[in-house]
Computed example of a mutant assay.
Amino acid sequence: MPADTMRQVGERIATNRRARRMTQSNLAHAAYISLSMLRKIEQGSRFPGDDTLDAIAAALGIDPTRLLTGHARADSRVRDALPSLSAAIAAYDIPDEGPVRPLAELRSAVREATTWRLAAQYVQITRELPGLLTELSRAFHASTGRERAELAELLVTAYRSADAVAYKFGARDLSARLIELMRWAVPETGSTNLESTVAYVRTETFFAARAHAPGLTALEHAVDHASAPKGADATAARGALHMRAAVIASRAGNTSAAATHLAEARTLGDRVPEGIYHGTAFGPDSVSIHEVSVAVSLGADHVQRALDIAKEWKPPAGLPAERRSGFYIDLARAQLWAGLADDSFESLKVARRIAPQHTREHPWARDDAATLRRLKRADSESLTSFAEWIGAV
C-alpha cells in the first residue's frame, strides 16, 4: 500500500473522529480495536484491513468509502457481494436449517439495515444482508399468527434494503426478483400501508425499463387501492405514491399528470411532519425535493422552476443522505442545462460529500460530470479528478 495512501486514510479517520469530538481512546473502544493500532493507522504507518476499516467506520457512523482515497475498492466489494444476495433469496421458500436470533434482535438488525439504506451505505448492506435474509426466511417459515405477520414485514423491509443496492449498482434482474419477493411477502403482513410502500418501490422496474407510462398506470392503481389518508402513516403512504407518480409522469412527458400528482403530494405532505414512514421519507421537504426532480425530468421551460426552488430552499441536514444527494444531482443537471457549469460542478461535489456511493452510481451524475469535463477540459484539474472518481473518463 503506497505510503501517502495510508497517510490519507489515517488523516480522514482522525478528521472524522475529531469532528465527532471523540478521543482516540473513545474510537478504539467503540470499534473494538486496540488503541495502539488506531494510533498507527491515524499516523499512516499501518493500513486497516477490511474488517478493521468497517469497524472504524461503523463507530464513526459513516460509510467505509468516506475513509478511502480511491473508489474501485468499495465498488468491487459491493459488486462482489451481489451473488451472495442472489444466493440468499434463491431458496426463500425452503430455507436451510440454522440458527435464528430472537425476534427483538431480528427487528433491530432490519432497522439498522434500513438506516444504512437511507444513508446510502451500500457496503454495510451487502456485508450483512445475505445472512440476515436467510435468517429471516428461517424464522418466517417456522412462525405462526402475529409473529408470522411481523416477520413478513421484516422480510419486506430487508428485501427493500437489498434491492436498493441491486438497483443502484445496475443488477436489474436481481432488483426485479427482490421486488417480486416483496410483493410475495406483503399480503402476509396484513398492512395496506406496506402494500403502498411496495408499489412505490416497484416503480424502479418501470424506471429501469423506461416504461414510464405503464409505471404511471401502476402507481395510479396503487393510489386507488391505498388506505384513506387518516392518520400519519396512511397519509404518508398515499402521499409518497403521489410523489413517485409525479416523477414518473414527468419522465413520460405527461405534464398535466405530473402537476396533478405533485399537488396531491404537496397537500398530503403539509398534513404530516417530515419523517420516515414504513421506510420511506415523506413530508414537506421530501415533496420539495421531488418538485425539483419533476422540473428537471420535464426539461425545457420547466428547468427554471428547479433553479428557483434552489434559490430559496435547500434540503435540511435531517433528511436521509440518499435523498439529499439526489436533490443536488438533480440541481446539477438543471444548472448545467442553464449554462451554469461552475454551479453544476459545485452541486455535484455537495452530492458526493453527502452520499459518495449514491452519487458515484447515479447515471445523471456520471453523465453530467463527463459533459462538464468536456466543456471545461483546459482549466479544471479538480473537475478532471472528480470525473475520474465517478468513472466519467
Rank of each mutant, 00 (worst) to 15 (best):
E11T: 11
A176N: 11
A338F: 09
I62L: 11
D75C: 13
T267N: 07
A338S: 15
A259W: 00
L178E: 05
A3G: 03
H362I: 05
R111H: 08
S250H: 00
I33A: 04
T235M: 03
G326S: 08
D93Q: 13
R21E: 04
P48C: 05
D368E: 05
A295K: 05
L348V: 10
S34C: 07
D4F: 11
L375M: 15
L85F: 06
R17A: 07
L241N: 04
I354Y: 14
R77W: 07
D54C: 11
R73C: 04
E195I: 15
H141E: 06
G269F: 01
A57W: 15
G275C: 10
R73W: 11
T134S: 07
M37G: 02
L181V: 09
A55P: 12
A378C: 00
E147D: 11
R21Q: 05
A306V: 14
R360Y: 09
L178I: 12
M182R: 12
R148P: 15
M243C: 14
M6W: 00
T192P: 11
T126Q: 11
E97L: 14
R21T: 02
R244V: 10
S86P: 00
P229E: 02
L155D: 03
R244Y: 09
L154V: 14
S76G: 06
R366C: 08
V294D: 02
P214Q: 01
L178T: 08
A222I: 09
A74G: 15
P83M: 08
E322G: 13
D54T: 12
L178V: 10
R117N: 02
P130N: 09
L133N: 00
W364C: 07
Q8Y: 08
A351M: 05
N16S: 08
L348Y: 12
D330V: 04
L348P: 06
L118F: 01
K376E: 12
Y167D: 00
L103I: 08
L194Q: 13
K40G: 10
F206S: 06
L174Q: 07
E346M: 06
D367F: 01
P48M: 07
T115K: 06
R251I: 01
A28D: 05
W184G: 00
R183H: 12
D4G: 00
E322F: 10
S385H: 09
R39P: 01
T235D: 01
S86I: 04
T197N: 10
A58C: 09
I248S: 01
G10C: 12
A14M: 03
T65A: 14
L340G: 02
R183I: 12
D93F: 13
A295C: 04
